Structure formats: C-alpha cells, structure tokens
Computed example of a mutant assay.
Amino acid sequence: MKTLNAIEAAAVVGGTNKACTDSYERIVVGGVASCRLITTCTDKHGNKTYQVKTADASKCPPSVAP
C-alpha cells in the first residue's frame, strides 16, 4: 500500500480546486454606470465566493433603457 501526502490525498477525496466563472455586469448607482467583473467560485463542498473588480466598459453588455 502506498502512503499519500496531503496533496495527493486531497486529489483523491475531490481535490481542493475551485470551479470559477466570470461575468460582466453594468452597475448603475446614482445615475453613473460602471462595468464590473464578477468572479463566482464554487469549492468542492458547494460553498460559493464572489469577487468584484472594475472592468473595461467595452466588456459589459450595452445599457438597456428602463
């Protein structure tokens, strides 16, 4: 039987890698629009984390009139 180190064992039981997706959203606050990159990550237990960063306006979808 082979002895596993912590990294090898983590891979066997599902690993510790997160699955992440990026989306761009146009946010309007006080009449001022800005583009944000929202990264959503899900770990092996189904827990989600979010990270928001400023992004180039050309990456966001066009504004939609109310």
Results as ranks from 00 to 15, higher is better:
Tyr24Leu: 05
Arg36Gly: 00
Thr3Ile: 13
Leu4Tyr: 15
Glu25Ser: 12
Ala19Glu: 09
Gln51Tyr: 05
Gly14Val: 08
Asn17Thr: 14
Gln51Pro: 00
Ile27His: 14
Ala65Leu: 12
Val28His: 01
Met1Gly: 11
Lys48Gly: 01
Ser58Leu: 01
Leu37Trp: 06
Ala6Tyr: 11
Asn5Met: 03
Val52Ile: 12
Met1Trp: 07
Cys35Tyr: 08
Gly15Trp: 13
Ala55Met: 02
Lys59His: 06
Cys35Arg: 11
Ala19His: 05
Thr21Ala: 14
Gly31Thr: 07
Leu37Ile: 03
Gly15Thr: 08
Ala57Pro: 05
Leu37Glu: 15
Ile38Lys: 15
Met1Arg: 09
Val13Thr: 15
Cys20Phe: 10
Lys59Asp: 04
Glu8Leu: 04
Thr39Gly: 00
Cys60Val: 08
Gly46Ile: 02
Thr3Leu: 12
Cys60Asp: 04
Thr3Gly: 05
Lys59Glu: 12
Ser23Pro: 07
Ile7Cys: 04
Ala19Arg: 09
Glu25Phe: 08
Ala19Ser: 10
Ala55Tyr: 07
Ala19Cys: 15
Asp43Ile: 09
Gly31Lys: 04
Asn5Leu: 06
Thr49Gly: 09
Ala33Ser: 15
Ala9Thr: 08
Val12Gly: 03
Glu25Cys: 01
Thr54Ala: 15
Cys20Ile: 10
Lys53Asp: 07
Thr49Ala: 05
Arg26Trp: 06
Lys53Ser: 06
Thr16Ala: 11
Glu8Tyr: 01
Ala33His: 05
Ile27Gly: 00
Asp56Leu: 07
Val32Cys: 01
Thr21Tyr: 06
Ile7Ala: 13
Val28Ser: 08
Thr42Lys: 03
Cys20Glu: 05
Cys35Leu: 09
Val64Trp: 00
Ser34Ala: 12
Ala11Phe: 05
Lys53Tyr: 00
Thr40Arg: 14
Cys20Ser: 12
Thr54Leu: 12
Lys48Leu: 06
Ala6Val: 14
Ser34Gln: 11
Gln51Leu: 04
Asp56Tyr: 02
Ala6Arg: 12
Cys60Phe: 03
Gly14Asn: 06
Lys18Gln: 12
Val52Trp: 03
Ser63Cys: 00
Pro62Val: 09
Glu25Tyr: 07
Cys60Tyr: 07
Asp43Phe: 05
Leu37Gly: 02
Ser23Trp: 00
Glu25Thr: 14
Thr16Asn: 02
Val29Ile: 11
Ser23Thr: 15
Gly46Glu: 02
Ile27Leu: 12
Lys59Thr: 11
Met1Lys: 08
Thr40Lys: 14
Cys60Gln: 03
Ile38Leu: 13
His45Tyr: 10
Ile38Pro: 03
Ala10Leu: 13
Val13Arg: 13
Glu25His: 15
Val32Met: 03
Ala57Val: 13
Lys53Val: 06
Ala11Cys: 06
Val64Gln: 13
Val32His: 01
Ala11Val: 04
Tyr50Leu: 14
Tyr24Lys: 09
Asp56Ile: 01
Ser23Arg: 15
Lys44Trp: 01
Cys60Lys: 02
Lys2Pro: 15
Lys48Cys: 01
Val32Thr: 14
Cys35Val: 09
Ala57Gln: 11
Val32Gly: 00
Ala55Cys: 03
Gly46Tyr: 01
Val32Phe: 01
Ile38Gly: 01
Glu25Pro: 03
Tyr24Val: 10
Arg26Ser: 07
Cys35His: 10
Thr21Val: 12
Ala33Asn: 04
Ala10Ser: 13
Val32Trp: 00
Gln51Phe: 05
Ser58Pro: 00
Lys18Asn: 09
Thr40Gln: 14
Glu8Pro: 01
Pro62His: 03
Thr21Cys: 12
His45Asp: 08
Ala57Lys: 07
